[in-house]
Amino acid sequence: MGIIRTDKLAYEYIRRDEEGNPEGITRAIDGVSIDIVPGEFVAILGHNGSGKSTFAKHINSILHATEGTVWVDGKDVADPDNVWDVRQTAGMVFQNPDNQIIGQIVEEDVGFGPENMGVPTKEIWERVEESLKAVHMYKYKDKSPNKLSGGQKQRVSIAGVLAMHPKCIILDEPTAMLDPGGRKEVIRAVRALNQVENITVLLITHYMDEVIYADRVLVMDKGRIALQGTPKEVFSQVERLKELRLDVPQEILLARSLNEMGISIPENILGVKEMAQCIAQEYFG
């Protein structure tokens, strides 16, 4: 059984007009069933308003489903007795780095989770140290978060979740407010956690270049899963992605243009290096 599993998950909320009278019902999530196995790196892509963030907030019971069930590590998140276990098993990193750092000093912030869980003092320090080291932020341990860059703040947030020793990390658009340098830092840290520490990752984003290395990509639209598969399978569907208001990696577009010019290059190569190697092979015969 998967570490995160949902069955026909649906979430509805009532729209209200200015006087507070109900106007209608919006179905933000509409029958989503997924199954993520331990150690997997799954990315959820989707434009703003596609329901991807709403979906993520169900996994650690910040929002509660209207219909359907979510299990984290076999535990039903709707059961109030499971809430704290679930939140510890599936840690969550949010979009705005300023709104999720509680401590005034980096190490105090990373210790916040373990403190809440009642971890003994000595072990908190060990966890803080190893978590900060895992995201390469140890040397900033006694700095004020306000002095850090966006990418560094997000890495501190990731360390804060890591210190709770989760089996799975959910990242809800962690790079949306960062510059390219910061985005790269964060994604590199996330990939390392997945590969080195074998933590299951669920990355929610609208940047296609961040999901190229995922094991599996889910594309959401109107609260449903519109497309899923390996990155290669998903990104080769250029027209469908454009319909879903998403970007297509330029290497795929390049291959397509070349094919139109009569040069045959496979249309499912992802990655700058991979694409260059493929063209070079063609060139050198």
């Binding site: 907030k57 650690n60 910040i62 704290w84 939140r87 510890q88 840690g91 969550m92 949010f94 709104n99 999720q100 509680i102 190490e107 105090e108 210790g111 916040f112 989770g113 373990p114 403190e115 809440n116 869980m117 009642g118 971890v119 003994p120 003092t121 908190i124 320090w125 803080v128 804060g160 979740v161 709770m164």
Partner: peptide, 18 residues
């Protein structure tokens, strides 16, 4: 939301880092 996600539930059973 971020505090709840990090298991904050008031002062009971909380330990101290410092």
């Amino acid at each position: 939301m971020a505090m709840e996600a990090r298991c904050y539930r008031g002062g009971d059973g909380r330990t101290k880092m410092k």
